[in-house]
């Protein structure tokens, strides 16, 4: 499972659209399954499933019809498609909603149906652009669970997400990108280790603390009235701060991808 991270406008969706052979590759080359994306879009697309950022279910059809019509685009024979669609409706737990028009589904159900739709052609690779946006925790967990199952079945999963806990939990490898460039690459834990260390100590910002940290040559960042101290040994720093610098309000926590993300791409608000 591979994750693309980056602020809004970083180029994640553009990369996704190029992988899907929908947007043109304007420079360099892009190969999927050993085929060039510019010359073999149909072949590549037949091996891929896509969960787009925006829901684009066919509102003129019911849940079941949506999957059947979609199967037809892949040239799947009708009888085989029927079996596959029943399996998939089971897989995403939408069997009861078989004959419901898609506009009457909840947000979570729509997302699950889109996941099922992306699987009608038994893809070797599944692309998900913000798969769990706006979903409640139950629906998110169901989607995560399904993605893990697919991974076990040997499907390559590529996803973008702004929920960094999601990426941390699911992805084996990830890149952080901004302005169309890759800034960081690696597994979630190695990236955290490399860029912020394993732990973070948070303390209230005041001049004495900062001076104290400078003396210690600690790696830290001032964020408003908070100071983040990056460390592999939170216990040591916490002790040092309480004993030597006599700081009282202090807390330690494990570092997360979010810390890496903010450190690398900055805290400035994006469009």
């Amino acid at each position: 499972m591979f994750g693309f991270l980056g602020p809004n406008g970083a180029g994640k969706t553009t990369v996704m659209r190029m992988i899907q052979c929908v947007s043109p590759v304007t420079s360099g080359s892009l190969e999927m399954f050993g085929m060039d994306a510019t010359s073999h879009p149909r072949e590549i697309k037949s091996l891929m499933g896509v969960v787009p950022q925006e829901n684009n279910l066919d509102i003129d059809f019911t849940v079941h019809e949506n999957l059947m019509v979609y199967s037809r685009y892949y040239d799947i024979p009708r009888e085989k498609a029927k079996e596959r669609v029943d399996e998939l409706l089971d897989f995403v737990q939408l069997k009861d909603k078989k004959d419901t028009m898609t506009e009457n589904l909840s947000g979570g159900m729509k997302r699950r149906l889109i996941l099922a739709r992306a699987l009608v052609n038994q893809p070797r690779m599944l692309i998900l652009d913000e798969p769990t946006v706006g979903l409640d925790p139950q629906a998110r967990h169901l989607i995560w669970d399904r993605l893990r199952l697919l991974k076990k079945q040997g499907v390559t999963v590529v996803l973008t997400s702004h929920y960094l806990d999601e990426v941390e939990k699911l992805c084996d490898r990830l890149v952080v990108m901004d302005n169309g460039k890759i800034l960081v690459e690696g597994s979630p834990s190695s990236v955290i280790e490399k860029y912020v260390g394993s732990g973070i100590v948070e303390a209230e910002n005041n001049p004495e603390l900062v001076e104290c940290l400078n003396r210690k040559e600690a790696s830290y960042e001032i964020i408003g009235d908070l100071v983040h101290i990056y460390t592999d040994d939170p216990k040591h720093i916490t002790e040092y701060l309480t004993m030597v610098c006599s700081v009282s309000k202090i807390s330690a926590r494990p570092a997360t991808l979010e810390d890496v993300f903010l450190k690398i791409t900055g805290r400035r608000l994006r469009e």
Binding site: R42, E43, K45, M48, E54, N56, D58, Y70, Y74, N121
Partner: peptide
């Protein structure tokens, strides 16, 4: 509005 074309071009159709 329905994004039907977007959904279809994710399949082998262009």
């Amino acid at each position: 509005y329905q994004k039907t074309f977007d959904a279809i071009i994710a399949t082998p159709l262009t």
